[in-house]
């Protein structure tokens, strides 16, 4: 597995962005504010905006599991989207290994995301027409990894999450827990430095959720992990809890 990880890391990293030794702080959000604009319509002169984040500053170190808690609309998912580069906040900086994502183009952010971030969604978001192995190998396609290496890596990851006998199954032929395990394997495909998980057990029963969390924390060791959830059991795996309310951090380290 270590050899495979090294091979993939060599392929997906470029000289300009090679993480080399993992930096002391993997993720740093500084004074991040984000407003969602809603068009006021034809007759309205003012555009109405909703503030999702207000002056949020967070740091996540390698090997640290950070839990984000708070009610719906408190800004948990917005922080995760900012870390993945899917969203550029209105103000503040989002650094990944010292690179400020807010100054990069969409294409550059996509490249950083592919190389350094793995995402686990609440609803798995697997491609229904691809097998479990093809889903896991998906990020490696864009990385330019040869087919045989992609297959080898995906098969090894599926074996690690306990789905060695399901590699050719379509997502519709897998249970919810199995689909989320495939999603975790996919998130690990490029050996990322950061894993973000948005309600990773939200669609699963308690026992299956625990298995998935064990896998996530076990396979994600040495990486920075951000988990957003409403569920106390899910958040109990975190080394540090950040509580959010109305877009602001009300406690960090609880």
């Amino acid at each position: 597995m270590t050899i495979l990880n090294r091979a993939v890391r060599k392929t997906v990293s470029s000289a300009s962005e090679a993480p080399g030794e993992r930096a002391s702080t993997t993720v740093r959000l500084t004074d991040v504010t984000h407003e969602y604009g809603t068009g006021g319509g034809f007759r309205s002169r003012r555009e109405r905006t909703v503030t999702a984040l207000r002056d949020v500053s967070i740091e996540v170190d390698p090997g640290e599991i950070v839990g984000l808690e708070g009610p719906s609309g408190s800004g948990k998912s917005t922080i995760l989207h900012a870390v993945t580069g899917l969203l550029v906040p209105t103000a503040g900086t989002v650094e990944l290994h010292g690179t400020d994502l807010t100054t990069l183009s969409d294409r550059e952010r996509t490249r950083i995301r592919r190389r350094h971030v793995g995402i686990v969604f609440q609803r798995f978001h697997l491609l229904s027409s691809l097998s479990a192995r093809a889903n896991v190998a998906l990020p490696l396609v864009q990385a330019g990894v040869p087919k045989s290496a992609r297959r080898e890596r995906a098969t090894a990851l599926l074996e690690e999450v306990g789905l060695g006998d399901r590699i050719t199954h379509l997502p519709s032929e897998l249970s919810g827990g199995e689909q989320q395990r495939v999603a975790i394997a996919r998130a690990l495909a490029t050996d990322p430095d950061v894993i973000v998980a948005d309600e990773p057990t939200g669609e699963l029963d308690t026992a299956t959720g625990e298995t998935v969390l064990d896998l996530l924390t076990d396979l994600g060791r040495d990486r920075a992990i951000l988990v957003a959830s409403h569920d106390d059991t899910t958040l109990s795996v975190a080394d540090r809890l950040i509580t959010l309310r109305d877009g602001t951090v009300v406690s960090d380290g609880g």
């Binding site: 027409s129 330019g144 990894v145 087919k147």
Partner: peptide
């Protein structure tokens, strides 16, 4: 790498199309 990437993308598109037509 670019060549391998586009080969992979073509294969991915073809596989998706085939599976969507035949299996799903």
């Amino acid at each position: 790498r670019r060549h391998t990437r586009w080969l992979g993308i073509a294969g991915l598109s073809a596989t998706r199309l085939w599976k969507r037509t035949v299996r799903t």
